[in-house]
Write a protein that binds this DNA or RNA. Structure first.
Lengths: 343, 343
DNA sequence: CTGAAAGCGCTTACAG
DNA sequence: CTGAAAGCGCTTACAG
């Protein structure tokens, strides 16, 4: 059974395709009677406009593309959910592609999206992305682009982020306020901006409180990327090398959970001997024992905000009044739980 | 900057659009020289065919739709990843919509997908779906449909599933073999088939071993749906009502983790006093302490398999030789870990 | 080997 | 209030 077309409706009603099209779109210059007739028939035949024909004419695809480093990931899947739910409200569909943290794939996927004529692109960068030509290519085609979470500061497009540096500062300050004297940091990979910023916030907090910054207390995530095992390995190493450390600010909750599990195995009391602050407020961190003090990173809201911004830019472009790029910083919050001492 | 069209290339080269189109697609009846010329110019102008025009002509959108109950979910996000990666290999793009376990939304989203003329649809049903008209509507349009994980047996389309009943039987048998005498079951919600099947497998295993089936030992997930708290609440209740229970087969790892956390709080030794088998092999179950014996449910492979089946059906339909629906059952495996006694 | 023409299903400026 | 016509960017059967 082929889908119904305007032509078929027109023939059945003995009127022109033009009139059918206008009736369906409630143009004022069609009689009420005709409109009623057309609408009724369209309803019974279950007519759905062929979006390819519509979009070929109107140059609007009502589709956006999303490129994300990894789908199987608590934070990113929340972002996706936020994007899809907001997009649906405006009748937009979302094509999702994942870069697997690879620059090459990311580039290829942007090409794919571009040739599918999406109305705009949402992206969170792969860790491997250090070159931005493929992103600027989007902008050159006058196609709206909004980056979120893992961004490139140099690309002139709108961005939705959190203030990683500030959040990390607050996390570290909380450790200091609750009495920690020697604080380590388990950081993420070297490249992505948010991993850098969290590290800088940690460092800044130490210095702001007149504490020594000791690079040996900064452990890199290198097992996988921010994995449970990273936490275990780094915790074991820290315990061996620096048993005087009494607080750790950890890049991601999952790593923090790994670290806690290792400390428990080693018989180290949390928070009595070591306090721990994580990052992201993954639901597991409120659920395991001890519950983990962490920074709430609003994934769902970030997704919503990113789509809304993209939508605004798509609309503005349509009206011929392109918007200036904007950077939207979402609020984060310190969630105090059992892994740190009450301050 | 507007995207380049065939017409522009044709004009620059002083040849016809027809020839340009054919050259780009390597038709045998175009001279090598012309082909080379066209291809080179297309390359430098960064020509990308307008997919809307192509698809309006060819009736192929190279796009499939995916409707899934929930994106922020370890199992489903793995499935999504499997689908996307496989689709990419064939040049297919995936539009993802989530039903939030609601039948109404699911229906609406299928309509959306249909009017966007996707080439096929992949779906895992919402828990609330008990009526299948919207699914049969897809089939009536001769559009390939493949269901996975949460399926409706009555709909005549291909399905990719695991044998939940058999897996649950094996899980329960393992508890019996390792010495458990009185075994409870924390089941999922009432409606979805897999929750029913896992329950049936549990019951069957008891009976097959000459053990009594006691309905009071079956606890329903009703806090949320298969949540951590379900595990805690049910574990607490079980401890109060049936302290003689020495084994539990639990519908989902997350619920099992909740139960374990509650038992640890209550001072119940695992597996000495109570053995626990979960379901899904979520990565956290290999990571917490004790590690959890579970059934490995191959999400990524399920996603790949579902796409491959859909792709086959799309191809067959194009050739005019539609395929008979097939039901593919993926292998599961019992993963023995610390939460049960070595048998 | 090349190209004119028809047509996919719509929308919209224009004429009546 | 209604409709003929052009056109969006392609593909492909057909003619030369």
């Amino acid at each position: 059974m082929k889908p119904v077309t305007l032509k078929e409706i027109a023939e059945k009603l003995n009127i022109s395709v033009t009139t059918v099209s206008k009736a369906l779109k409630d143009y004022p210059d069609v009689s009420k009677k005709t409109k009623a007739l057309v609408k009724e028939l369209a309803e019974t035949l279950n007519y759905k406009p062929n979006s390819f024909a519509v979009h070929l004419r109107t140059k609007e695809s009502k589709t956006i593309g999303l490129v994300i480093p990894e789908i199987v990931h608590h934070f990113f899947s929340s972002v996706i959910k936020g994007i899809i739910s907001e997009a649906e409200k405006e009748g937009y569909l979302v094509i999702i592609l994942q870069s697997n943290e690879s620059y090459e794939l990311e580039k290829k996927q942007i090409d794919l999206l571009l040739s599918h004529r999406v109305d705009g692109i949402l992206i969170s960068l792969a860790n491997g992305t250090a070159d931005f030509k493929h992103l600027n290519a989007i902008l050159e085609q006058d196609k709206p682009l909004v980056m979120f979470d893992k961004i490139a500061k140099l690309v002139k497009c709108s961005k939705v982020i959190i203030d990683d540096q500030k959040a990390a500062f607050i996390a570290t300050q909380h450790l200091i306020d609750s009495g920690c004297k020697r604080i380590a940091h388990f950081r993420g990979p070297l490249l992505p901006q948010n991993s850098i910023d969290r590290f800088l916030g940690y460092k800044k907090a130490l210095l702001a409180n007149g504490m020594e910054y000791d690079p040996r207390l900064v452990y890199l995530s290198d097992c996988g990327e921010n994995s449970f095992d990273d936490g275990k390995v780094n915790a074991a190493q820290l315990y061996k090398d620096h048993s005087d450390v009494d607080g750790i600010f950890i890049n991601t909750d999952l790593v923090a959970i790994g670290a806690i599990s290792e400390f428990q195995k080693l018989g180290v009391q949390i928070p009595e001997e070591i306090s721990i602050v994580g990052f992201s407020n993954w639901f597991m961190s409120s659920v395991i024992s001890p519950t983990i003090t962490t920074i709430d990173q609003p994934g769902y809201v970030m997704g919503q905000t990113a789509f809304i911004q993209l939508y605004k830019e798509i609309q503005a472009l349509k009206k011929g009044t392109p918007l200036q790029p904007e950077t939207i910083t979402l609020e984060t919050a310190l969630i105090k739980r059992e892994s740190t001492k009450g301050s």
